[in-house]
Simulated scan of single mutants.
Amino acid sequence: MAQNGYHARKAAVVLLKLAKATSDRDVAARLIEAAADLKDQTGELPPPQSVKPPDVQTEG
């Protein structure tokens, strides 16, 4: 089951990237709906692995 969730999340990410790249609003809306359906089936998408919080420097 975990493998299926992994592939569904990867597919949802690809669908969102395609929706962002297309200039046709109707196609983008359908791609986003499909990605949302996959997300609903598998649960929350994990956060990106490469995101790190910015370094915060305080003056003092």
Rank of each mutant, 00 (worst) to 15 (best):
E44W: 05
A2W: 03
G43T: 03
S50A: 13
A21V: 02
L16D: 03
R9F: 05
A29V: 07
V13K: 06
D37C: 01
D40M: 05
D40S: 14
S50I: 08
P53L: 15
P53G: 11
Q49C: 09
A28K: 09
V13I: 11
H7S: 08
Q41G: 03
P54C: 07
A29T: 09
L15Y: 01
Q41N: 05
A11G: 02
V56N: 11
A35I: 00
A36H: 03
A36T: 09
D24I: 14
G43N: 05
H7C: 09
A11I: 03
K52C: 11
L16M: 10
A8T: 06
H7N: 13
R30Q: 07
A36D: 10
M1N: 10
V13S: 08
D37T: 01
D24Y: 11
A34V: 04
L45K: 01
A11S: 07
P54T: 07
R30C: 05
Q57Y: 14
V51C: 00
Q3P: 00
A2L: 08
A19D: 02
H7E: 14
T58N: 07
V27M: 06
V51I: 09
K17Y: 06
T58C: 03
D55P: 04
D40I: 05
A34N: 12
A11V: 06
V27P: 02
Q3L: 12
E59F: 13
P48W: 04
T22C: 11
Q49N: 10
P47L: 02
V56R: 14
K10L: 13
T22V: 13
A34H: 08
A19P: 01
V51Q: 05
A21R: 13
L31M: 08
K52Y: 11
D55N: 09
V51M: 05
L18C: 12
R30Y: 04
L15I: 00
K20T: 03
A8H: 11
I32H: 01
A11W: 03
Q57K: 15
M1Y: 15
L38Q: 03
R30G: 05
S50D: 15
K17F: 02
S23T: 09
G60F: 09
P47I: 02
T22L: 08
K17D: 05
T22H: 03
P46M: 07
D55A: 11
N4P: 00
V14M: 14
P47Q: 00
T58L: 11
L18H: 10
L38W: 01
V27R: 02
A36N: 13
H7W: 10
P54E: 12
T42Q: 06
R30W: 02
